[in-house]
Amino acid sequence: MAAVKRWLFEPVPRGRIAAFRTLVYLFVVADLTVITPWVRTHAHVPGDLYQPLLVGRILPLPTPTPLLVHAIFWILLVTSLAAATGRAPRVLGWTVFALYFEWMIIAMSYGKVDHDRFGFLVALAVLPTVGRARHGDTTRTEAGGWALRVTQIAVVCTYFLAAIAKLRFGGLDWLTSSVLARAIIRRGTDFADLIAQVPYLLIVAQFGIVAFELLSPLIFVLRDRWRHAGIGFFYTFHLFTYAAITISFAPHLVAMASFLPLEKVRPIEWLKARRGERAAAQT
């Protein structure tokens, strides 16, 4: 148990938390305005078409109305921008999580449920527990380590449970089915058309996808260097997926950044250094 506790609460630099927090909250803004702006159209959908997810029935949550949808949109937009600065991390963090959670209930209660939001929702839920974190701070925090670890577990569960679902509902026949072929016919790109012309390549790809998803938990037993390479493979997998059938998994990719040493990415300091170099060159 002690080893498990050390693993779950492995300390990380506060700067990593600050960077991840900024990335997550800025993505909420991008999601609202660019990635899934269609959620706002549910404000004008008749209430009798609203079939809330189980959690929406248990709580229970209200049927979306124009006032509710637009109010959540604007409040969430403003609070996410504020939360990205790192100020009032608990108050703003919990507010963003609650509003985005309701936003996802509104989005997914009309017949379409995306599984790329799980890890991202977990990240929103655990980030407020960390407290203050400043960019560039090398002080290590166990609370931050736990928040990132829980997010990582959610990311890996997204892969592993996707494979379980494929085998549960499609059986072994899923591996040799025409799932990818149908996806390419429905939303494939020119790149996908090239792939589809190679005999048996789609079947091999389906075996590879299930194997990759089932083996994804092994990412936790790899050393740092190989773990980062493995995460690079995960991102490459999604790059090819988007190139072939235009499915981006954007929120999942943001949550997956919890594996990365984000504290090393410090754009503000880089910009200051560049400005200093330009000023020195002009004198």
Rank of each mutant, 00 (worst) to 15 (best):
V156R: 00
V155F: 01
R132V: 11
V254N: 13
R223L: 14
G230C: 12
D193Y: 02
L218F: 11
F234N: 12
S248C: 13
A165N: 10
T158F: 01
T176S: 10
S258P: 03
A143S: 14
Q206E: 15
W226Q: 15
V156N: 02
I203K: 04
V210Y: 07
F259G: 03
I153P: 01
A133E: 11
A257D: 10
Y242L: 08
L161Q: 04
I245E: 06
P199A: 02
R227N: 13
T129W: 05
L167I: 03
Y200H: 13
A162W: 06
L201Y: 08
D190Y: 11
V155P: 02
A250Q: 13
F234R: 07
G208N: 05
A211S: 08
F249S: 06
I203A: 05
S177L: 02
V254K: 10
L161E: 01
G144Q: 01
Y200P: 03
F237C: 10
G208E: 12
I184N: 03
A154C: 00
I195R: 01
S248E: 14
V265A: 08
A143F: 15
P251L: 12
L127T: 07
R186G: 04
D224W: 07
P128K: 14
V210K: 13
V210Q: 13
V204W: 15
A243Y: 09
T246N: 12
R132M: 08
L127A: 10
M256P: 09
H238R: 05
L253P: 15
P217F: 10
A211L: 11
H228C: 02
D224M: 11
G232P: 08
Q197S: 07
A250I: 13
W174A: 02
D193R: 07
L214E: 09
L262N: 05
